[in-house]
Computed example of a mutant assay.
Amino acid sequence: MKEIKAIIAAYDKIDPTLTRAALAIVVRVEGSSYRRTGARMLVLDDGNWIGGISGGCLEGDALKRARLAINNSEATLITYDTSEDDPHQIGVGLGCNGIIDVLFCPLDFNDPNNPVELLKKCLKANRETHTLITITELKRELTGIKKGYCFQYNGMDTLEEFENLKIQESVEKLIKKQIASQKSGISTIDTANGNCLTLFIELLPPEIHVVLIGNQYDVFPMCRLLKEIGWRVSIVANPLKLNPKIIILADEVKSPAEFQNMPIDEHTAIILMSHDFKTDKINLPKALNTTSPYIGMLGPKVRAQKIWNELADEGFTIHEVDMMRIHAPLGLDIGAVTPEEIALSLAAGIKAAFAGRDGTFLKYRKLPIHQRS
């Protein structure tokens, strides 16, 4: 999401009377690749770019391809094969063993639904997972729809531009299948007269939101690291007790009394870091009363157990399903000592949990780092 925000910020500064641009999107990855599907790169015709589609090895050629798409006013799909030893293949010698399809879409600044404008609408909308559809391959134009056409799926009504009920039904079936898998991916259908339609169905979730409850000095390095990652950060504390730098850095600061009215969703982590036993004991039931799937508590296991026991004695039972949401002690075991290192441990633990990983060394992982297509 940080990359998308940077692309939007750069796009908004473009003077369309002086500069033309294209958006490169990774739409398919087979095997290993530094970047995954959905990685984006905004390319200007003056040679500047924002974002990236690889670790830097493909960007040079991508710049040329994007400028060509701009000049031709036509979207193009380019395949980079880093698994071959062909000296004429861009990416040879990288040893990545991956095949990457990149779609280069020239941007029409007069089109309110161009790929970047579409991203802007998603970011301005409610915190939900958006489904974006991009046409990556099409043998012949379909009723004005061509390669590079993109739109947001919000039900059957958003498919009306295909002007063919059979195609609409086929496309919706593919979209629902991709949504059920909770992963972005490529799907192809055969249309009438031997035409072939390939779609990149992208699930775009909101950024991770972390609510830090506390006002001690270690809130600042935690907030600073999370913002560098690109996550949303809310702080619940008395503003008068916070470092002014934190107030400027965080997305929002709420008083403890406002916590219960804060929007908390399935992409939100709540961290109890007041360093005060009674305060954390009061805040834990409030956190459990939200839909947050991740509730972290600073401090040793014995401290957390004491809080749980006292709450149970007072009639508040923490059920097993809620215990799965609680992370105490919080963070990954990396030997963190300083506030900055502890922030790194906590952030890594949050990311691992939301990604469904256990945070172990990658050298011991039996499966590929990313799911293979």
Results as ranks from 00 to 15, higher is better:
I7Q: 05
Y11R: 03
Y11Q: 09
D12A: 11
K13G: 00
K13P: 00
T17M: 07
T17H: 11
T19N: 04
S32V: 06
R35D: 10
A39K: 13
A39Y: 10
M41K: 05
N48I: 08
W49F: 13
I50W: 09
G52L: 11
G55V: 03
C57E: 05
A66I: 03
A66L: 06
A66S: 15
N71S: 07
S73D: 12
T79R: 15
D81M: 03
T82F: 08
P87G: 08
H88N: 13
N97Q: 14
I100R: 00
L103Q: 00
F104D: 05
L119P: 01
N126A: 15
E137Y: 00
K147Y: 00
Y149T: 10
C150L: 07
F151R: 04
G155I: 14
G155E: 13
D157N: 12
E163P: 01
K173I: 07
K177R: 04
Q182P: 02
I189C: 04
G194C: 11
L197C: 01
E202C: 08
L204M: 11
E207N: 13
H209P: 04
V210R: 02
L212R: 00
F220C: 02
M222K: 08
G230F: 09
W231A: 14
P239T: 03
L242D: 04
I248S: 14
V253S: 03
K254V: 06
P256A: 06
P256Q: 09
E258C: 07
E258S: 12
Q260I: 12
Q260K: 12
E266F: 10
E266H: 08
H275P: 14
D280H: 10
K286A: 09
T291S: 15
S292K: 06
L298I: 15
G299I: 11
P300Q: 11
V302R: 15
K306L: 13
E310M: 12
V321D: 13
D322P: 06
H327E: 11
L330F: 15
G331F: 11
I334G: 05
G335E: 08
A336G: 00
V337Q: 13
E340M: 03
I342N: 03
A343L: 08
L344N: 01
S345W: 10
I350Y: 03
R357E: 08
Y364W: 05
K366F: 11
